[in-house]
Write a protein that binds this DNA or RNA. Structure first.
Length: 189
DNA sequence: CTTAGGATCGCCT
DNA sequence: GGCGATCCTAAGC
């Protein structure tokens, strides 16, 4: 339904399409953030996805309405931010893996404890720390404060490859990146 | 340059 | 009890 676009994206589309379209989109949390340069798609029928085994206390946001956040704790330490997609109840999402830092640089440097701007948002756990994303935003609508999304510019060139840090479905090329960007967590081959 | 280990939470078998 | 959609530090080659 074209009346439901957010940042020019139909979040009812399959996760691999949403993941691709999110490249270049600007995401801010309380005015701090930047351009998405790296994403990964996870689907309900995907052995590598948290949604694969159905809803749990941790992943229930993935089964909620699309264009909402799914935030989970990784390795008991870091937070990771996903954008929920597909129709409600399906259980699919896109992991936001890296940003080009644009707005609120000093805030991000302070939160991350570094002056090296590449270390601010070059990984899913890093960018959540830089943007102040925690479980408090799990299930939160992306069109509502503190979130603020802006469309990608025209002419974005997207590259893809295998996802990172998983042991199942390792050959599925559902990692997407902005071509030539130096802000991705790891280079694309 | 690559590899290894620790931190530490929640779901799984 | 094991193992992650991670990150950091230290040590080895």
């Amino acid at each position: 339904m074209s009346s439901n676009l957010l940042a020019g994206i139909d979040f009812h589309a399959p996760s691999e399409l949403v993941a691709r379209q999110l490249i270049g989109v600007t995401v801010l949390v309380d005015g701090v953030g930047g351009r998405i340069v790296e994403t990964e798609a996870y689907d309900r029928e995907d052995p590598a996805s948290h949604a694969y085994s159905g809803p749990t206390d941790r992943n229930f946001a993935m089964f909620g309405p699309p264009a909402h956040a799914y935030v989970y704790r990784s390795y008991g330490i870091h937070w990771c931010l996903n954008f929920v997609c597909m129709e409600e109840g399906h259980g699919a999402g896109v992991l936001i893996r890296a940003l080009e830092p644009v707005t609120g640089l000093e805030t991000m440097r302070a939160r991350r404890g570094t002056q090296d701007d590449w270390l601010l948002c070059s990984g899913p756990g890093k960018l959540c720390q830089a943007l102040g994303v925690t479980r408090a935003l799990n299930g939160h609508a992306l069109d509502t404060a503190p979130f603020e999304l802006a469309p990608a510019p025209a002419g974005i060139e997207v590259v893809s490859g295998p996802r990172i840090g998983i042991s199942k479905a390792i050959d599925v090329p559902w990692r997407f990146g902005l071509a030539g960007s130096r802000w991705v967590s790891r280079p694309f081959r």
